[in-house]
């Protein structure tokens, strides 16, 4: 149980090329676990249809068993009662695993700002990509998947590199200031916005 030989390689060119291959294979064959919770699940199913066809990414094998899944698309609102189930299914997934929080309800509670709904699934499980929309159109989900591939899957550090990355993250967390004291995340220097009509 656990990881294979790729975890024991010393960092260097060999490890980087292994990382490349591992990233490529994970990107090309990412099986989602079936986890539709509400209306977003309908759009998630639409992504499997001929118009958008998630199979192009090799992702049409929605895995019923979390053991064989790589990606959890939390599609829909997570009620307080569902929260432990979400967590359990996530825990049952084999590493490495990723999470897309699809739609505003899963991401932040959305318009259901009440006692029954978890205000963001990141209270329960680590989320890799947040996807706005209510529900997001299928292209938005594909966009989130492409983003996930690009940012998290393609160059996932392994072995020694991962230990180093974890250490860096730990140090950053220790040095972090409270949110209200953090600098703004966006460039607020000028009034020049993105050209949305382009």
């Amino acid at each position: 149980m656990g990881y294979g030989i790729e975890e024991k390689l010393p960092s260097g060119i060999l490890l980087s090329s292994v990382e490349e291959i591992v990233g490529l294979s994970h990107k090309s064959s990412m099986w989602p676990v079936t986890f539709g919770l509400a209306c977003c699940a309908i759009e998630m199913m639409a992504v499997g249809g001929p118009h958008y066809d998630i199979a192009r990414f090799g992702m049409e094998r929605f895995s019923a068993s979390p053991r064989q899944a790589d990606l959890m698309i939390v599609a829909g609102r997570v009620s307080q009662k569902m929260a432990p189930v979400v967590r359990q299914v996530y825990d049952q997934m084999a590493n490495p695993k990723w999470v897309i929080s699809m739609g505003v309800c899963a991401s932040s509670g959305g318009m259901f700002n009440n006692y029954a709904i978890v205000q963001g699934v990141d209270h329960i499980i680590p989320v890799d990509i947040y996807l706005p929309g209510c529900p997001p159109r299928p292209e938005m989900l594909l966009n989130a998947i492409v983003q996930l591939h690009k940012e998290k899957v393609r160059h996932r550090p392994l072995g020694a590199n991962r230990a180093a990355a974890a250490k860096r993250a730990e140090e950053a967390a220790m040095a972090a200031v409270p949110t209200q004291l953090q600098p703004a995340t966006h460039d607020h220097g000028g009034y020049v916005g993105k050209n949305l009509l382009a």
Binding site: M1, G2, Y3, G4, E6, I21, V22, L24, S25, H26, S28, S29, M30, G49, P50, D53, A55, R56, F57, G58, E60, R67, D70, Q92, A94, N95, P96
Partner: peptide
Amino acid sequence: RPGPNRAGPFGLMQTLFDGLKSLFKEDV
């Protein structure tokens, strides 16, 4: 719908990547 067509030419590498991925996955 087209089916897997992004992994390699015509998606021919799809099975190979499936196998590799399984190899690199945690064996619970």
